[in-house]
Amino acid sequence: MVHAARPVRPAAARGFTMIEVLVALAIVAIALAASLRAVGSLAASEADLHDRLLAGWSADNALAQLHLAHRWPDLGEQQFDCSQANLRLTCLETVSATPNPVFRRVEVSVTTPGRAGNLAQLVTVLANETNRSL
């Protein structure tokens, strides 16, 4: 028995269609846009963290100066410049009485002009060392 020869077909064209290429490009473009947004968000978060670190140092410095001065702070509020590096910062020191007259509560809040809210806030209690005998 003789078999009939099959007709020879040309090899099927291999590769991607134009639509497949466009879909792949769209997916890559969306992924790149999401990546750029994430990187931008991380950069903004890092800058905010840096500002908060500097503000924390400013508040800590203000409280350390009070401890080192060994003076009894007056009741009330005092605002002063406490800039760090190239960041303009303003400290608000609030001294209030406590139930125990030997202690005063001192709170330092740090803000920056043009930005709402505190970047840092520290609280301590100071003892009246001026009347203490050694």
Score class of each variant (00 low, 15 high):
26 A>C: 15
39 V>G: 01
48 D>I: 09
63 L>Y: 08
133 S>E: 15
127 A>W: 01
102 V>Y: 10
29 A>H: 02
65 Q>R: 10
95 V>C: 02
15 G>N: 05
33 A>C: 03
90 T>P: 03
78 Q>G: 05
30 I>N: 07
28 V>R: 13
81 D>Q: 12
93 E>R: 14
121 Q>V: 02
111 T>S: 11
122 L>G: 02
101 P>N: 01
17 T>N: 09
105 R>M: 14
28 V>L: 02
104 R>F: 00
119 L>F: 15
84 Q>L: 04
78 Q>I: 02
14 R>K: 11
66 L>Y: 05
20 E>C: 09
121 Q>P: 00
134 L>D: 04
25 L>M: 14
83 S>E: 10
44 A>G: 11
40 G>W: 06
88 R>W: 04
122 L>K: 05
25 L>K: 12
87 L>S: 05
71 R>G: 06
91 C>G: 02
106 V>N: 00
107 E>S: 04
106 V>Y: 00
12 A>D: 07
98 T>V: 11
76 G>K: 13
29 A>W: 08
62 A>I: 03
115 R>F: 07
54 L>V: 03
116 A>M: 06
65 Q>N: 07
89 L>V: 05
66 L>K: 12
89 L>I: 14
127 A>I: 00
90 T>W: 01
118 N>G: 06
20 E>Q: 02
74 D>W: 08
134 L>V: 06
63 L>H: 08
67 H>M: 09
27 I>G: 15
111 T>H: 13
47 A>F: 07
119 L>Y: 12
118 N>L: 13
12 A>H: 11
15 G>T: 04
82 C>Q: 14
51 D>V: 13
55 A>K: 09
7 P>V: 05
44 A>M: 11
20 E>F: 04
45 S>H: 13
38 A>V: 10
3 H>A: 14
77 E>L: 13
12 A>M: 10
111 T>V: 15
87 L>N: 07
124 T>W: 04
50 H>I: 09
111 T>I: 12
63 L>W: 08
77 E>F: 06
57 W>Q: 10
128 N>R: 13
27 I>V: 15
36 L>Q: 15
67 H>A: 02
